[in-house]
Design a protein around this nucleic acid. Structure first.
Ligand SMILES: [Mn+2]
Ligand SMILES: [Mn+2]
Ligand SMILES: [Mn+2]
Ligand SMILES: [Mn+2]
Lengths: 218, 218
DNA sequence: ATTAAAAATTAGGTATACCAAAATTAGTAA
DNA sequence: TTACTAATTTTGGTATACCTAATTTTTAAT
């Protein structure tokens, strides 16, 4: 199997199984990888033979310790490059994901570590995702989705779970960027839209959007 | 054909045919690409269909205008990354070629141009190779191989044609780096070894090494 | 427990990128 | 010219990464 193929599978399994030990289904994996389920079935059989995943036929797959190590490496490179592109090369947070998808496959530890070191070994990337260190360890947090937040409480935006340019531009337009403090004023009983108060203004956002914003109570 | 495959063929044809329009033979191409001639024959047929090369059966191939444009793009990215790695990220000139072989395939003009701009739009890379600008234009020079230099004259080292770590480390050990001024003292009649005088010392180097060093008369 | 829908697998195929061995063509040195 | 050598092409393969359509398994809904 091509190294890049392996890396894309493992990274995606990792991303889809945030509580890492849960099984990831083939359909979800196929969608993220933009492949057909039949293709993914084949791929997983090979990754199983390579001992990167344990594959429970018809139920899904999870990373082995070996697979998780590789996955965390890719995730580290991806997030460090995104941070470097934003902080050192002047890209917007909405532009970097696609470029990082390519740069993440360049394997050179000296390079990755040099970039990290220039950045002061950052712990979060521009989307609020934690950056694993060289050993794969990273910040663990008790952040929640904005869609699960409660009225009257105060929150701070810590990240996003959709890296698409359209979504990030939408957030930026409304000044909903990482670090923004906001208060959850009310939740519409009708459709669960959320009314936010921040920066001396009010904004209503859909559940759909709120599910993609990560916050912390403050 | 995979984009990376195309790019490696075109870049290599370009590098092997520095005197622009000369035909490049399949054997030479196969060696550089670490492929077998049979494979290259196939590849060239496809590149011909894609209008990237003109392929004269049994004699060799040369780039079309379209192919040359793409090739110069890759060469630009390769050389800019090498320069960036050396000047901004603290790598040695002997470490960057392999990394650049991967980075050169990341296609994003904003990124390439940003790196170039940070570097002050450099015209030469760390090995003395000229860097094409966005339109593919680059410095032309009348440099010669050190093996073709004449006794008693003074020269300045302008570049190298072998990017391998072993060769570059050898040069560095003897302080034969780019910019070094030297005088060609004598040429051994026996084996054409060259006796150099520079930095208040003398050094004899083989024809083999001298062929890989590019100099300019000063 | 039955059934319909969704997810996963299998079977059968295409396209790309490579290779070894054999056959051909080009170049060179008598 | 001939005869050898080197380069190139052809032929017949392998391996990987995909796909569609058909079948099977799992899950969810009566
Ligand atoms: Mn990303
Ligand atoms: Mn990110
Ligand atoms: Mn190089
Ligand atoms: Mn170079």
């Amino acid at each position: 199997m091509r190294q890049e193929t392996i890396e894309n599978y493992l990274k995606t399994i990792y991303n889809l199984s945030s509580d890492n030990s849960a099984l990831v289904g083939n359909k979800a994996l196929a969608d993220k990888l933009k492949l057909k389920p039949a293709t993914v079935t084949e791929g997983l059989r090979k990754l199983h033979d390579l001992k990167y995943v344990v594959y429970e036929k018809s139920y899904g797959s999870r990373l082995t310790a070996l697979g998780a190590r590789l996955a965390l490496n890719i995730v580290r490179r991806h997030r460090i490059w995104e941070t470097y592109l934003v902080r050192e090369l002047g890209f917007g947070w909405d532009e970097v994901h696609e470029i990082a998808e390519e740069l993440e496959h360049v394997k050179n530890d000296k390079l990755t570590n040099k970039l990290a070191s220039i950045l002061g070994n950052p712990v979060y990337d521009p989307h609020g995702d934690p950056i694993p260190d060289e050993k794969g360890k990273m910040q663990k947090s008790n952040f929640i989705k904005l869609s699960e937040a409660r009225t009257k409480l105060n929150y701070k935006i810590m990240g996003v779970t959709d890296h698409s340019s359209t979504f990030l531009k939408y957030l930026e337009k409304h000044q909903l960027t990482i670090g923004t403090h906001l208060k959850l004023k009310t939740i519409e009983a009708f459709d669960h839209s959320i009314v936010l108060q921040y920066n001396k203004k009010e904004l209503t956002i859909s559940v759909k959007a709120a599910e993609l914003v990560i916050v912390e109570e403050v």
